[in-house]
Design a protein around this nucleic acid. Structure first.
Lengths: 260, 260
DNA sequence: CGAGTAGTTGATCCGAGTCAATCGTCGTGG
DNA sequence: CCACGACGATTGACTCGGATCAACTACTCG
């Protein structure tokens, strides 16, 4: 139900990179025809994950990195007391498990929030391929670098911004990401529970609930459960960066995709 | 006031990687003799930075990545209203400016907190060298991956832990890092101001001050301005991870749905 | 239908921010 | 050599944002 907007048709999981609608956004972008063919030889696709299925779990042996093809993935860790901490929500085009390369085992867990198609890239083959395709190495460096920059921005968010600012930034990021995939930036489904948004933003779920209510009453949003409509983007952006974030704010989100 | 030109190429600091005391920690570790020689050919060393000098500034054109050889570097950004946000303190052996690779310009600023020696690595040469030395590429992937994992941990810290927990984690991290460089893990100088610690941890400097006082009174620390002595490491560790940070979690914890 | 779960709303409390006063140290100049 | 001002650190008093606790509502699913 709440997946209607994000699902792609069933045949896509057989499709090649060449005619994938994400080919300009993902790891394989900027490769020429020959290189793409080589790349494609190491990519594996399989049956989609269903909601609640894990792609990998923390402390599993590390083998692959993954790209989300459609659907969405929640990335988190579980602590000893059972509490979880959510590091991110991955939408189509994004690369998963980069944080796990150094350790030999997955540093976090990844679970599908809805029916989700995945491209699987065995890491050793990939590393070897990077030796043959400088573009590919370069691209991974760049993606890793953006991940670091993005993580820094989130640290800033968590360390210095209050609840409504965090929430506004979150909504705009979601909007952007969803927009990148060709859907409406103003009307979209949030695939995650309130509790997960709260956890991700370092807040209590009651706080998120109150913010939804308030933004709804103030005419900034129109909220119907998980269906969100942004009614006043200007105001939302003003809340997200009050005095203005540092110069090129949110640029990191677009650089994977934007042309160079 | 402006130090943009402060990297002067004297060939004076000839200390080679081969007999550098950091060679097992830094980017060049795990290279064989031949590879190390190639690597060394692209590394540049120059006069040390003095306290308050910038290594680079945010939005400068991106050219190099850097390794701290001795001293320490503060990494931060400045926001439009002049407020700053500190992302990290870099001690010897650490690699700087990874977050800037994707953008073509430095995403943050780096300033010396004391007299600091630096190894400078022109990024284009480095990228080319990675094509010839698989180990080097692998190493950079790993360092980038650890940076991401580290950033995730800090997000967890900022999102979910209270002031004394953050502070304890910070002290232990400092202790570890300093210990890695062969100094005492229990008695050390903090090179940064209280305000900077506070900023880094997302707290007010008064809070940090109170924590120093409290930990001192409780016999956990002995504090003399910037000289710190850890008197009760056990207790400090207990504060840093109350129920235990994230675990080597085993799969028996069967939650909602799972298994693929 | 009924039970279980997610979300909302209200009441209360507490940790840490803010404001303000004071102290100590350092560096400068008379 | 001391007086002075500047700045960082400490301490206290007060405030407030958001967590926590506790009902209550509304779906969803069996």
């Amino acid at each position: 139900m709440d997946n209607r907007h994000n699902i792609v048709n069933l045949k896509t999981y057989q499709a090649s990179c060449t005619n994938c609608n994400l080919k300009d956004f993902c790891l394989a972008s900027h490769l020429d025809v020959m290189e793409l063919e080589q790349f494609e030889r190491i990519v594996e696709r399989s049956q989609p994950l269903q909601r609640g299925q894990h792609l990998y779990r923390q402390s599993d042996k590390f083998h692959n990195i993954y790209i989300v093809k459609s659907g969405s993935i929640k990335n988190y860790i579980t602590m000893q007391d059972g509490a979880e901490c959510i590091f991110g929500f991955y939408l189509p085009g994004e690369l998963l498990a980069l944080d796990s390369i150094a350790k030999g085992e997955y540093a976090s867990s990844a679970i599908a929030q809805q029916t989700t198609y995945i491209c699987k890239i065995p890491y050793p083959s990939f590393e070897r391929l990077c030796q043959q395709i400088p573009h590919l190495q370069e691209k991974l460096f760049q993606i890793a670098a953006s991940k670091i920059a993005e993580a820094y921005n989130r640290q800033l968010l968590l360390a210095q911004r209050n609840s409504e600012e965090r929430f506004a930034v979150f909504l705009l990021n979601q909007s952007d990401q969803i927009g990148k995939n060709g859907y409406s930036k103003n009307v979209f489904y949030l695939s995650m529970a309130r509790q997960d948004i709260a956890n991700y933003l370092g807040l209590a779920c009651e706080t998120i609930s109150r913010l939804f209510t308030r933004f709804n009453n103030e005419g900034i949003l129109q909220v119907k459960k998980k269906l969100i409509r942004i009614r006043d983007q200007k105001r939302l952006m003003a809340i997200a960066s009050p005095t203005g974030l540092y110069p090129v704010q949110t640029a990191y989100r677009s650089e994977l995709n934007s042309e160079s």
